[in-house]
Design a binder for these strands. Structure first.
Length: 179
DNA sequence: GCCAACGTTGGC
DNA sequence: GCCAACGTTGGC
């Protein structure tokens, strides 16, 4: 059993989106970094613990369309973004398989160099277990036991990072109480 | 808006 | 293979 932290932009896939999905499970599409891919392809096992992290999101804007009643249209507008931080707990829910978005010319994640015979980008499914309060970066930085977390290292941009069992236990303890 | 860090690209 | 230029991520 291993532990991971996986970053998502909440205006793309948030912890709420994952909880609302069938079986509370979403494919972790869109990773286009070899190190992060290799974690999913080679190291993750079904049942591994995942910290569901919301990274800072893009500009405010219309994030969805809904219908209230009888055709009343509603545009979901994200007026501002929350701080980045851990927003929930999840688990690895599948073995690796190809990321479909790499084959779709309409997708922002399209990779013209990838083929179905030799897919370049693999992903796993992630099942949301529970939404937590937002544990922010400043809060994490203030905890001595988390000082060496890969997430907190200067210049870290990797969207998937391993978490040690000690870091996991420490975060589980802190996230259940008030900051 | 700024910028550090790091990945990718392409000329040689 | 080297490496400068450029692009992206993502916190601040």
């Amino acid at each position: 059993m291993q532990y991971w932290l996986m970053k998502s932009e909440p205006d793309e896939v948030s912890i709420d989106d994952a909880l609302a999905a069938p079986r509370q499970t979403v494919p972790w599409f869109g990773v286009r970094n070899y190190q992060a891919r290799n974690f999913m392809r080679d190291a993750m096992r079904v049942g591994d613990g995942v910290l569901f992290y919301h990274s800072s999101c893009d500009d405010p804007g219309i994030a969805g369309i809904a219908e209230v009643a009888r055709g009343d249209g509603v545009l979901f507008y994200h007026s501002s973004c929350d701080d980045p931080g851990i927003a929930g707990i999840a688990e690895v829910a599948s073995t690796p398989y190809p990321d479909d978005t790499q084959f779709d010319p309409e997708s922002q994640y399209y990779d013209p160099k990838s083929t179905r015979e030799h897919p370049r980008w693999m992903l796993v499914d992630v099942r949301a277990v529970e939404k937590t309060r937002l544990m922010t970066l400043p809060e994490m930085r203030a905890i001595t036991e988390l000082a060496d977390m890969q997430l907190l290292r200067r210049g870290n941009r990797l969207s998937i990072t391993p978490v040690t069992p000690a870091e996991w236990r420490c975060i589980m303890l802190h996230i259940k109480k008030k900051p």
